[in-house]
Design a protein around this nucleic acid. Structure first.
Lengths: 180, 180
DNA sequence: TCATTCCTAGACTGGTCGGTCTGTAAACCT
DNA sequence: AGGTTTACAGACCGACCAGTCTAGGAATGA
């Protein structure tokens, strides 16, 4: 039989990335991932040890992919905190958008502690990015304000499906840097 | 045998309210609810028809309980949008706080459509409350801005556990009503 | 050519899931 | 007292879960 083009491990990760994001980690069975990846069960356990291991790998991959894309869009975005809205916008336009995988993992409840920690790390890294776009001598709380707005935008977009959320976020972020 | 003090249906709803909120609906098995309620399985199916029926009843109960409490705190809160932070604060202090049950239900993934609709209705009702605290001739987008801040606050509080989130929210909401 | 490595196919285990069924005991209402 | 309602306990069902095991096929490299 001809070998599939990509490595079995890669195919597993790609299938897990899609299914875990679309349906949640707990709600997705291993057999479904295996079927979509076209991979034998033993191969999964050889590479990742357990479903939890696969989930950890998924969150790591998702963190890197999301951050890379976010940084790429940030480079062409408006300067300052408003640029965050510009970088969020293409993500919000994704056809398969279902919010933030890390928020979803925490909201799922009963997620393994190692997954919750990965989610927290992701949000800390995001905080660093936001911090980096604050004016040099801005109050330390400025980044926290922007983060609240970003998380709120994600949730609103996910729950209402309203594409106009991004315009509201741009307004909010644009007003942050010029306080009274 | 002496009848338990409360009705079986009430005990079921109380147990479901605690467990579904603390662990998520999908992650909570029926047997666990039955054990905590001290109720036979057939009684659950007699009153609610299915786990989904119990979940719907839970979300309805939660909506009413949350709204009642929120309105009660709003009456003693500062006027205007800042008051929303005052009303959020006691909720954020709850020892068993695990975010918004409706957000969590949507984030869970694979939730029954009827549950997602209940979540959307809850957020629409919340929007009405926020709208009611906006200045009479405020732009229609003002409520959307406040909602983004509220949802973001809930998520930040849930994910970081930081109790200081409420102070940032109060700052953000306080600045909303006096735009440039 | 032969051994090693990676992978596949699929049966299998023990446990949990939502949901059904039987049978019985207690309380309530005439 | 007798019938009805309500809830009890617990066995049971098929489906699905994560994870294990066996056996063998296909490519690689000495």
């Amino acid at each position: 039989m001809a070998r599939p083009p990509t490595d079995a491990r890669d195919r597993l990760l790609v299938a897990a990335a899609r299914l875990f994001y679309a349906q949640g980690i707990a709600a997705t069975g291993i057999d479904e991932v295996l079927r979509e990846a076209g991979v034998a069960k033993m191969t999964l356990y050889h590479h990742f040890g357990s479903k939890e291991g696969l989930a950890v790998a998924f969150l790591e991959w998702r963190h890197n992919a999301w951050m890379t894309r976010f940084h790429a869009h940030l480079e062409q975005a408006a300067p300052g905190l408003v640029g965050l809205a510009d970088a969020l916008e293409p993500w919000f336009r994704d056809g398969d958008f279902r919010g933030c995988a890390f928020i979803n993992t925490v909201c799922e409840g009963r997620s393994a502690p190692v997954l919750v920690e990965a989610a927290r790390r992701h949000k800390e890294d995001l905080r660093m990015v936001v911090q980096g776009r604050c004016p040099p001598r801005a109050a330390s709380g400025l980044a926290d304000e922007a983060l609240i707005i970003i998380e709120g935008a994600i949730i609103r977009r996910q729950m209402t499906g309203d594409p106009e959320v991004i315009a509201v976020v741009r307004r909010l972020l644009g007003r942050l840097v010029v306080p009274s």
